[in-house]
Structure formats: structure tokens, C-alpha cells
């Protein structure tokens, strides 16, 4: 399918596959104890481990950060067709798109937040694209791996051509504003509310952006990676069990 030697169904050679994440272990090859601080709160594992979190002495548990890399053309499979159709139907695509990533047989278009509605409308209406269904909208928090740490991910499905494409936008936690796509895909209504509820991304133009799964008076955004787990120590048969984020963990 692909001409650049990468099968679309394999994980790509690029580390990270477009996801701002940490690289494979480094300490194991150098033999040195891991001296890097944890890349992110999330990377340090469950229970607030400082240092490498290594209990084995093997020293290979800290991962380096890698910047996400775009995939060069050709993308392989139907991805080139989708990109060309979008390029044809959407004038000025170069300004709206930040990066194209193909990984594990999936196409991800990183879109500038302010253009997401226009891109979605073209994706839905254009003859050659016809992404009629917005399957899913959700968020991911790449704390420590990306300056614009809050990502919103849209999974679009074309029922006509039986294709899937992922759109992704990134915003900072200080200014977490993304235009709402509910005008294009009404099904995004609750899913955007869920993303707001858990990540604090404000969808501008949403008809009723309120919490949906958490209680209305809840404070904070629970799925952000810096959200404290909380809890109190519990005494049981004379021993004290610390709250979850204070316990020892094996990473």
C-alpha cells in the first residue's frame, strides 16, 4: 500500500507516532543510573514517585521526551486521497493544518484550533470527503510533553467511503479555547461537554457548555494530569495505608 516502505498497519519508524510522548528507555544502554527528572507528572507513574521510580536498580526507566514529527508524503493507503480532496476543497489548507501524521494505519491531521469548524464543515460536505459521522470527541492532556498541553481529538467517519480520519487541535491550559463544532456535527454536543468537564477546554459557541458527568459544583478538571488524586491515610489493623498518590509504585 505505502511506497515509502512503511506498512500503514505497523507502528511507524518515527518515535511517538505523532504523539508527544517520551522516547524508549535510555539508561539501559548507557548503564548509568537515570539522572533525568521525570518528563511529566504522568510519566512519574502512579504514586508521586520522584527520581526514576526504579526499584530494580536497572536504571532504565526514565524516558526522554521527543517532539512529535510529521509524516512525509506519500502517506499510503487512502490517506493521500483524503488529503488531496481536502486540499482541493479547502483553499488555504496549508495555513490551517499544522502537521500530518500517519501511524499504525491511521491518519491524524493536526489543525489550528481557530480553523477546526471550517475544516470539519469541508470534511462533512465535500463530495470527495463525505465524513458524515463524527464518531467521537475527546481530550488528552500532554502535560510536560507539549507546551500546548490540552489536545482535543475528533474521530471522523466517512460512511460513503468507509474511511476514518482523526483531527487534532492543541491549546494551552492558560487559554483553553476551541470553537465548537456542534454547528457542523450536532452529536458533538455532549462529547464537547464531557471534554470540558474533564479537561477544562472551553468550546466557544457551544449551546450549553456545562458539566455533564461530574457534579455541577465540582472544582477542577479531573482528567488533567496535574489534578491531585487526594485521599487521606487510612489506618487498618495498626498499619497506616497512605493515600493513592503517596504510595510506592513500580513503574
Amino acid at each position: 500500500m505505502s511506497t515509502n516502505g512503511v506498512e500503514p498497519n505497523r507502528p511507524s519508524e518515527d518515535p511517538g507516532g505523532g504523539v508527544p510522548a517520551q522516547a524508549p528507555p535510555v539508561g539501559a544502554t548507557s548503564g548509568a543510573p537515570a539522572e533525568y527528572p521525570p518528563a511529566s507528572h504522568a510519566g512519574r507513574g502512579m504514586f508521586g514517585i520522584h527520581g526514576s521510580g526504579d526499584t530494580s536498580g536497572f536504571g532504565g526507566l526514565v524516558r526522554r521526551r521527543v517532539d512529535p514529527v510529521g509524516t512525509p508524503r506519500p502517506y499510503g493507503g487512502y490517506f493521500d486521497e483524503v488529503y488531496d480532496a481536502l486540499d482541493y476543497a479547502f483553499p488555504g489548507l496549508e495555513d490551517a493544518i499544522e502537521k500530518v501524521v500517519v501511524d499504525r494505519g491511521e491518519l491524524t491531521l493536526h489543525i489550528k484550533p481557530e480553523r477546526i469548524v471550517d475544516v470539519c464543515r469541508t470534511m462533512r460536505d465535500s463530495e470527495g470527503l463525505r465524513f458524515e459521522l463524527c464518531s467521537s470527541v475527546s481530550g488528552v492532556d500532554y502535560l510536560g510533553a507539549d507546551d500546548r498541553r490540552l489536545h482535543v481529538v475528533y474521530q471522523l467517519t466517512s460512511m460513503t467511503y468507509r474511511r476514518r480520519v482523526r483531527l487534532e487541535v492543541a491549546v494551552t491550559a492558560d487559554h483553553p479555547r476551541v470553537p465548537s463544532v456542534t454547528q457542523v456535527y450536532p452529536t458533538a454536543d455532549w462529547q464537547e461537554r464531557e471534554t470540558y468537564d474533564f479537561f477544562g477546554v472551553v468550546f466557544e459557541g457551544h449551546p450549553n457548555l456545562t458539566r455533564i458527568l461530574m457534579p455541577d459544583d465540582w472544582e477542577g478538571f479531573p482528567q488533567r494530569k496535574d489534578y491531585p488524586l487526594g485521599g487521606v491515610p487510612v489506618e487498618y489493623k495498626g498499619a497506616e495505608i497512605p493515600p493513592p498518590d503517596k504510595r510506592r509504585s513500580y513503574q
Binding site: V19, A21, R63, S136, D141, A145, V153, Q191
Partner: peptide, 19 residues
């Protein structure tokens, strides 16, 4: 039923979202 799974290369899911 859609599963969006993100890994950061670790032994735990970085994010799993269920559609």
C-alpha cells in the same frame, strides 16, 4: 463502541477514552 487509546511508551495507558 470506539476506543481511543494513547500510550506514552510506559507500562500504563496514558489515556483511554471510550466512545
Amino acid at each position: 463502541l470506539g476506543v481511543h487509546a494513547v500510550s506514552d511508551g510506559g507500562t500504563r495507558p496514558y489515556r483511554v477514552h471510550y466512545r
